[in-house]
Amino acid sequence: MQSLFGRSLHIRTIDTGSCAVCESEIRLLAAPHYDLHRLGFFFTPSPRHADLLLVTGPAVRAFDQAVKKTYLAMPEPKIVVAVGACPLGGVYSEDAFVHGSLEEVLPVDVFIPGCPPSPLALLQGLLVAVGRLAEKVDALSFVDDEAGTGEW
C-alpha cells in the first residue's frame, strides 16, 4: 500500500446518516490547526479522482445504492475509512433503518473509533490507512493490572 500512495492522496467523503458532528471534524482537517495538505492529503469533490473514501454515519439502508455507486466510481486502488462510532455500530444497533455497521455495505480498510473522532484521531487514521504510521491499538492496555490476572 505504501508504494501506491507515496504520492499525494485525494479524499472524498460520504455521509450515511451522521449527526453532522463527524462532518464538522472532517472539515476542520483542512483548517490551519491541522493543515492536512502538509501531509500530502487533499480533499476532492469528485469520486473519480479519489483514492480514499471517508464514510460517516450508521449506513442508512435506503442509501446503499448511492454509497455503492460512489465507491464504484473511485479508481483502483481505493481505501475505505469508517469514521466514528456510527459506522462501527456504537450509536445505532442494526434495525430496519440502518445496517449499524458499514462493513455490511462496503469493504472497510480502516476503522477510526470515537464519537466523534477528534481531528487528530482522524489524522492518525489517515496515516495508518496509507501505511505511513504504525497502528497502536494492539499494544494499548485497557486494564491497570497489578495482580497479573491479565488481559487477553
Partner: peptide, 15 residues
C-alpha cells in the same frame, strides 16, 4: 487513548 485507528476490526475488541 485516542489513537485507536486500525485496519482490523478485531483489534478493537479487548477482553
Amino acid at each position: 487513548a485516542f489513537e485507536l485507528s486500525t485496519t482490523e476490526r478485531g483489534r478493537l475488541i479487548k477482553r
